[in-house]
């Protein structure tokens, strides 16, 4: 035998799981929402999403290669996800230069300045979206009316959550929200499509149920309790579940591996926290939507949660049976 034997510590086999598999699993899960977006916003959705992915991948490649001077690993899929998620969080008629700025902030500042994938504190897409929302509030909160009837679309309209506080009579039906033809950002149209994505992620074991379920349950229960005492649309739990970025946030943004807690207990605390902050901002805050702020805040708490929660250990409960 000419080849030298390889010697290494055990284990000698590997599951074959890779970062890429997980990342591309998330991308596959985003397909239903993307199809709905294509149906609703037609070419605009395609252009914005494609450009956001292009910008994110290009910025990551250029920054890693020429500023950090390492081998770029843009094909691990994380930059693509950031691009898609950022695109899904903006209106379909956002000017391209604003989108590019958001991508640069998300990749350059939020992700790579902390050391790249695995070391960032905040979810790049969320932070990018908030950066744009604060810097360009006008462009970020003007949504084109859905283009379903085929009518020439020039009107911009407020979102469900925007109307919730001011014009409750303009609310679309719950069915519309569930299947997704109300005004809003590109990817937050259809709760159904996002739930399909959640099903895929759970089936492929990319994520566990803890974070999305705890966020949704907290939002539903919190608003539900208020609704019992004051049954006006503003407090309707289903409206809160199906509107705005809640589903998108709960399924795809809050579950980002890097910025969410690692223990099951921690995931539940994190999810409940996001749920509470989201509802609080939506009901009593200045902004109509609070999901991204809630996730960003809880991202900041993640290291603390990790520090104070431990996994369920073997032998902790001695059951004599």
């Amino acid at each position: 035998m000419e080849n030298k034997l390889v010697v290494s510590p055990s284990p000698h086999i590997h599951s074959g799981d890779t970062i890429e598999k997980n990342m591309y699993g998330v991308l596959v899960a985003l397909i239903p929402a993307f199809l709905v977006a294509l149906y609703v916003f037609r070419l605009d959705a395609l252009i914005i999403t494609a450009l956001a992915v292009l910008f994110c991948v290009a910025f990551e490649y250029l920054i890693v290669k020429y500023i950090i001077k390492k081998t770029p690993t843009v094909l691990d899929g994380s930059a693509i996800i950031t691009g898609v998620l950022l695109a899904f969080n903006v209106p379909s008629n956002l000017p391209v230069w604003i989108l590019a700025l958001g991508c640069l902030f998300a990749i350059g500042v939020v992700k790579l300045s902390f050391g790249g994938l695995g070391n960032n504190i905040f979810n790049p897409a969320i932070a990018g979206r908030i950066f744009l929302l604060i810097s360009f509030p006008a462009q970020m909160t003007l949504w084109p009316a859905p283009d379903i009837a085929g009518a020439v679309d020039a009107v911009t309209s407020a979102t469900v959550l925007g109307n919730l506080k001011s014009n409750p009579e303009l609310l679309p039906s719950l069915q519309t929200m569930f299947f997704g033809t109300e005004a809003g950002s590109i990817g937050e149209m259809s709760a159904l499509a996002l739930l399909l994505g959640l099903g895929w992620l759970l089936w492929k074991k990319v994520i566990t149920w803890h974070i999305p379920v705890s966020i949704m349950a907290t939002v539903a229960i919190f608003t539900g309790i208020i609704y019992i005492f004051n049954p006006i649309p503003l407090y309707h739990p289903l409206i809160h579940l199906f509107s705005g970025g809640l589903m998108l946030g709960a399924v795809f943004m809050a579950t980002d591996y890097v910025t969410s807690p690692m223990t099951k207990k921690g995931m539940l605390i994190y999810g409940v926290g996001i749920g509470f902050i989201t509802v609080a901002i939506r009901l009593w805050g200045a902004y109509p939507e609070g999901v991204s702020f809630a996730i960003l805040l809880m991202n900041a708490f993640t290291p603390l949660i990790n520090n104070y929660t431990t996994p369920k250990r073997f032998g902790e409960v001695v059951k004599h049976g």
């Binding site: 030298k4 034997l5 390889v6 010697v7 290494s8 510590p9």
Partner: peptide, 13 residues
């Protein structure tokens, strides 16, 4: 060299 070490890059290990 008569074989290839392929573990963590650490002498103690």
């Amino acid at each position: 060299r008569i074989n290839l070490y392929d573990g963590a890059s650490n002498c103690t290990i």
